[in-house]
Nucleic acid binder design. Structure first.
Lengths: 329, 329
DNA sequence: GTGAAAGCGCTAACAA
DNA sequence: TTGTTAGCGCTTTCAC
């Protein structure tokens, strides 16, 4: 691979001149620049990012840590990130934590060590303190799904609680009496907020005694197991709100296995609006999260911070119910 | 962030000694090593990857170029890659070409420029020559979905043609007469091989005149459009084999819109076995591709080449029909 | 067993 | 406008 030296020699100028020409820096005559660029092109020269980086310049890389790459929800957010970042000539380094907190932390630490120009965290499970520490020492950090206190961290969240209330009320307004909730992994703020929204709505409508919660860990299999557990209750629920679509899919699968009809026997509402949601039968009623927008906000905030423009520090994006067939309307 | 110098000063040794201690290199007394490591730990020192890299050491990064991150098929392969690579302490840099060839080439070129230790290409659309050139100059290259000639390129493919034959024959054996094929984007070898398999099977069973092909560009929307086109033929097909599941999903959606029943009016078979396939109604009969295994092979071959072990150069993985409901059995 | 010194490829301050 | 020089953080000879 050619280095800046090769170009300099071939063009008969100094390395500094090549650098200036390449980087569109001032102080090079148009003619020299032309010539240098031509040579660089001929030699297929591209400045080595590592060397640049060592000099303190940007790497052109942003790191994204995702809890689980098999969740299509996160993939769509990543696409939003990628879209925005690539417009600014940044690449995305995706690190999959595979639902393991120590792996997540290892990724973050590694990224913070000068590998990337910005760090984007999707629904992280590590502590605020850890994130804040990284953010104050290393590159800009933007987080989705959490508001992190104690450091210069941009956060993007959606109005989970409100949306969960809305979804619960939708079910209530359609005459469902015993609405159960399948929660994600305890401790994940997104999921907790949804649970709260559900509880609030149930209480407000005098259905406190019908509150029923099972944990499904955000996975399809968890949703399936949760359905089985819920059906053993007496009386069983006549509606289910799942804290994400993966779990709702599990409910659909489980219901099919058990001969339970959706929505006749059990109305179902999910959360996220992943791509599968409109393809399954019955098509899934779910709370839409603006995934592309989430990705855009995360990326944009990182970009802003990189440019020294201190962007908004906290974004709360709306999430609205998408009514399809599984809720029985 | 502390540098090796800080550690050296604090420990009262030279930078070289610190380097040796950190890298478990020989030539340091056990006592000195202990002391240095203790200091390094106290200072939270980690060697900057960029600096290492500049010295010619590994970056610990592998680059994956994917045609379209929204296709869950590729995401599953990436997971396989990630899984294998992370076991070897490598990170994965995912570059989304968003179905644009020039973007794909830009990504590859960028990756080849010393950013990563290995390059993994999923179903690339660029030329053999370009890939071969990169492979012979830069880091190890492994490709899925193509056999690239002219350079030291490992290739992983599946038995597409055979699988397409099998799928077509399955439809034939169930009494379908006019089996149509929805092709992907012309020129993509995977898709072409499937088309050939379909043609072969149709010919072998004397259904040459019933061969009907529409292009769906591997997308859901393309599949939907292709269905509409096929239904305008006289006589219309009574079965469809789609070159991937995304297009099969499009057929399902389109059929629902048009009041066509699957599998009664039209039997449907897809290709890939993406996660959605078993969740839709009717559950999709499809050719399963061993996605995790594909990822594993790609990663392993890169790893082997990095270690100097020249691994197998060409892998052909089996692909088998998964019978569900959409084919009408 | 340890240190001094060179240099990886690049950029930025300073000179010319 | 252009070149010279120093140095980013690390590893790796080569002395001692």
């Amino acid at each position: 691979m050619p280095t800046i030296r090769d170009v300099a020699r071939a063009a008969g100028v100094s390395e500094a001149t090549v650098s200036r020409a390449i980087n569109q820096a001032p102080g090079v005559s148009a003619r020299t620049r032309e010539r240098v660029l031509a040579v660089a092109r001929d030699l297929h020269f591209t400045p080595a990012p590592v060397a640049r980086r060592l000099r303190g310049a940007r790497t052109g890389l942003a790191g994204v840590v995702v809890p689980d790459l098999s969740a299509s929800f996160f993939v769509e957010i990543i696409q939003g990130i990628e879209h925005t970042l690539s417009l600014n000539d940044y690449r995305v380094l995706v690190c999959d934590a595979r639902n393991d907190r120590s792996r997540e932390e290892a990724h973050i630490r590694w990224l913070a060590d000068g590998t990337v120009d910005a760090i984007l965290l999707l629904a992280p499970t590590t502590t605020d303190a850890f994130i804040a520490e990284v953010a104050s020492q290393g590159p800009p950090v933007a987080v989705f799904g959490r508001v992190v206190s104690g450091g210069p961290v941009t956060s993007v969240t959606v109005a989970n609680r409100q949306a969960a209330e809305q979804a619960t009320e939708h079910l209530i307004s359609h005459g469902r009496e015993r609405i159960a909730f399948i929660a994600g992994t305890p401790g994940i703020p997104d999921g907790e907020a949804r649970l709260e929204g559900y509880r609030d709505a149930m209480q407000r409508h005098g259905r406190e005694s019908a509150i029923a919660v099972e944990v499904g860990h955000f996975s399809e299999e968890g949703g399936r197991a949760a359905l089985r557990a819920l059906l053993e209750r007496r009386p069983p629920p006549d509606a289910i709100l799942a804290a994400n679509d993966e779990m709702a899919m599990g409910v659909l699968v489980g219901a099919r296995e058990l001969g339970v009809r959706v929505p006749e026997d059990i109305a179902l509402v999910g959360f996220d609006n992943i791509r599968c949601a409109r393809l399954v039968t019955p098509a899934l009623t779910t709370v839409h999260q603006p995934k592309l927008d989430i990705g855009f906000r995360l990326a944009q905030s990182a970009l802003d911070r990189l440019k020294g423009v201190a962007g908004h520090e906290q974004w709360v994006l709306p999430a609205d119910l998408v009514v399809r067939r599984s809720c029985g309307c």
